[in-house]
Design a protein around this nucleic acid. Structure first.
Lengths: 117, 117
DNA sequence: TAAATATAAAACCATTTGGTTTCATTTCAA
DNA sequence: TTGAAATGAAACCAAATGGTTTTATATTTA
């Protein structure tokens, strides 16, 4: 499974691809149906779908002459996890505590110390 | 201010840039100090910092002959918000409830004509 | 069966990306 | 004060990106 050529961070970097994901969140759709929502060619959309598919964010099944694409949001958890590290910085209320408890309070208080051994 | 040329999704798409952010999460660092952690040139790192800076994820202040870069994680909230839409799909336990409460229960039930459960 | 629909695949293209090397400038330190 | 350190800036490069157009193939449908 899991084609690794395109990772999820790269897949969601493009705004068109993010819109495609949003469309598929409501409904599975054929390539042409997706294309109808954008000002670019069907071929371009097909390429975006291919990239999303390599990141395992969508999959396509053939149905007659159509190819129906479906959302698979699971790989987004990787982004969520990555992001969770930074939550300590913006939710100062409880996340600092959480961070301190989970890790060590050390790196919250050391300034810039020149060398990072 | 806020240069909009590079958005945050694009900024975090590159793994080197994600590592740079992680380094800066512990400490502010000069360009050379950052470079020491990577196999690529100082110039390449400087370009990555420029892109991160355009996304307002870092800022640099001159200190003598050094330029010290600092993390500004706030723009990551945009990613978090984008992602929150998809939480309804993976955490079915409480996120559906959360989604319903925060937004309206409307969009839970509107679109999905065909599939999905 | 013939025309229309839906997609696939390939060739092509301009721009962006992620690097490099080289040279200039500023600042620190011996 | 002279050299090393840190950065900036520019020129260059190969590969990837995000598009296009063209051609071919399979599937409906009139």
């Amino acid at each position: 499974m899991s084609a690794a050529k395109h990772d999820v961070f790269q897949a969601i970097a493009d705004p068109t691809r993010r819109e495609v994901l949003r469309l598929l969140a409501s409904n599975e759709l054929a390539i042409s149906e997706i294309t109808a929502h954008f000002p670019i060619s069907r071929t371009a959309i097909a390429k975006h779908l291919h990239i999303l598919s390599e990141a395992n964010l969508v999959s396509g099944k053939k149905a007659g002459r159509e190819k129906i694409y479906q959302l698979h949001p699971e790989p987004l958890t990787e982004v969520k996890q990555w992001l969770s590290y930074y939550e300590q910085f913006w939710d100062n209320k409880l996340s600092i505590l959480k961070h301190v408890v989970e890790n060590d309070n050390e790196d919250r208080f050391k300034g810039r110390k020149k060398d990072q051994e």
